[in-house]
């Protein structure tokens, strides 16, 4: 078991750098235990970290904010905050998986035919809005398991490999919350705030607060963290008059800040 743990720790550390868009990809080593019910349990240590334990021993837990960690010795109770809820659909949210075959139809070489890799697009939807999908490609079993955190902030996707023996698997952790934004306006654009709030389409972007902009702008700007820029572009398209996207570099109470510029007075996007 020790070589497995060492390998897993190294692998998790290496792949932590691959964290992107709030998603952590973990590829388990080939000799890692597979996830077998009912002896396996999946849990959230917090809204941000997802893990699993097997027969009472924690094998691994991974967070969207920190590298994965592996341990077999601590008591499970210390780590578990809540059990993960395994269901694709909730009253107001659903997990979406689109399976796309590779564009390459497969090829022959001598007596051997090789299939194209499968592509899975993982997303979370609320009403008619779906978040930008996370695309995972490889030799993947299209049977995907979904685990929601208790607060519904996170969703973990367990991508198990085909076959019965212990094989590499992947865990993808997504931010399942739909965007929250803070809208900032100066004196000249203050009157446009209600229209902007309506335009941000309830159910997709919710306006958490409004405030006063420190400067006047010609064009509206959507500020977002570097890993949320893609989402920011979708929000920018909803802002009346359009908006550019820039990186958010200060602490805020919402993950997106929309600073209104004079362009918001000019019309609809």
């Amino acid at each position: 078991m020790r070589p497995l743990i060492a390998t897993l720790a190294v692998l998790c550390s290496a792949l932590a750098s691959a964290q992107d868009a709030g998603v952590l990809l973990i590829e388990w080593p080939a000799d890692a235990p597979r996830f077998r019910e009912p002896k396996d349990s999946f849990f959230y240590r917090s809204e941000d970290s997802f893990g699993f334990h097997q027969e009472g021993s924690v094998i691994a837990w991974c967070s969207v904010k920190a590298p994965c960690q592996v341990d077999t010795t601590p008591p499970v109770e210390k780590w578990i905050e809540s059990s993960a809820s395994e269901t694709p659909s909730l009253p107001n949210k659903r997990a979406s998986v689109v399976v796309r075959p590779g564009k390459d139809p497969g090829r022959w070489s001598g007596r051997t035919w090789t299939a194209p890799p499968t592509t899975l697009e993982l997303s979370v939807c609320e009403g008619s809005w779906c978040k930008q999908p996370v695309v995972v490609s490889g030799r993947l079993d299209p049977r995907v398991r979904v685990f929601w955190s208790g607060g519904l902030k996170r969703v973990a996707w367990l991508l198990q490999p085909p076959g019965r023996e212990p094989r590499p698997a992947r865990v993808v952790i997504m931010n399942a919350r739909f965007p929250q934004a803070q809208v900032l306006a100066d004196a000249s654009t203050q009157g446009a705030v209600p229209a902007v709030t309506r335009a941000l389409s309830p159910g997709y972007v919710s306006v958490k607060s409004t405030g006063v902009a420190k400067k006047a702008r010609e064009t509206s700007v959507v500020y977002a963290r570097s890993f949320d820029l893609e989402e920011a572009r979708r929000i920018a398209a909803l802002v009346p008059g359009g908006a550019s996207v820039e990186e958010l570099t200060w602490a805020t109470e919402a993950e997106f800040v929309i600073a209104l510029g004079a362009s918001v007075l000019g019309g609809q996007p």
Binding site: R111, W113, T114, A115, D141, P142, P162
Partner: peptide, 12 residues
């Protein structure tokens, strides 16, 4: 079911 997720075939 194994064919559903196959990656390659060898023919003899």
């Amino acid at each position: 079911g194994a064919l559903a997720t196959c990656s390659s075939f060898d023919v003899f």
